[in-house]
Design a protein around this nucleic acid. Sequence first.
DNA 1: GCTGCATGATGAA
DNA 2: TCATCCTGCAGCA
Length: 274
Amino acid sequence: MPEGPEVRRAADRVHAQLAGRRLEHVWFAFPALAPRADSLVGRRVSAVDSWGKALLTRFDDGRVLYSHNQLYGVWKLHDAEREPDTGRSLRVRLVAEGRAASLYSASDVSLWQQDRLGDHPFLARLGPDLLTHGVTVGEAMARLREPRFQRRRLGGLLLDQSLFAGIGNYLRSEILFFAGLHHRARPTDLDETDLAHLARTILEVTRQAYEHAGVTNRPEWAAADRAGGASRRRWRFAVFEREGLACHRCGTPIERTMVASRRLYACPRCQAAS
DNA sequence: GCTGCATGATGAA
DNA sequence: TCATCCTGCAGCA
């Protein structure tokens, strides 16, 4: 569940599974963490939330479990007595009052004191989370105008977690498409109207992905794709991974390029360089 | 079975 | 900007 919206959904699920419950069993695959597992037994899970792509499991003694799934980590919820059927490697298991949450495959996990979380090297550099920190359009515009960001090209800037935490590679393509912008455009190139449109699009596409389990395509376009027999991988997005297929807006074939060492998909007509 | 790629991030240059 | 690490999996023998 790689990008911010999916991580937030995972956090919601783990929260619903464990929040308020007392831990009966804690297991860590990591040598640095394993000795501390027993010290969590008896504590309650107070909340599970996310910040960008980081998932934070909070305990009632002020400690916080940080986990980052990178490309492959996944949380599974299950009954304590029932082992999930997965060939993946178990990394974390939290069992509270008979209910369990297990983290598989993730390799970046650490335990922090709540008041020292700001020392985490990754969290320390994160910008506001678009879903959890209640960013407004005006605040997003102001952030895009900050001197350290305003002259950078959007193709690289949107992936920078210090701008807004949680935007990943598929959201970058989707946001630029819905904003009608070329990846080489800079915030300074945009007038008030276009900057507002970009800010609103960043918030809306991210929110849409959160509410619809990662689907950012417009319902009517997705329906048309599905009617044509497209797989979820194809109908899920408006442009991402649609190289060679007709743009939903103008029919021009979608193009794929590498920008900042990542795949970027765009409509050469709707997102022409200005 | 092997290879390359991936919705990610880092550190060196 | 590039190589590298992390792990799983799709695609191809």
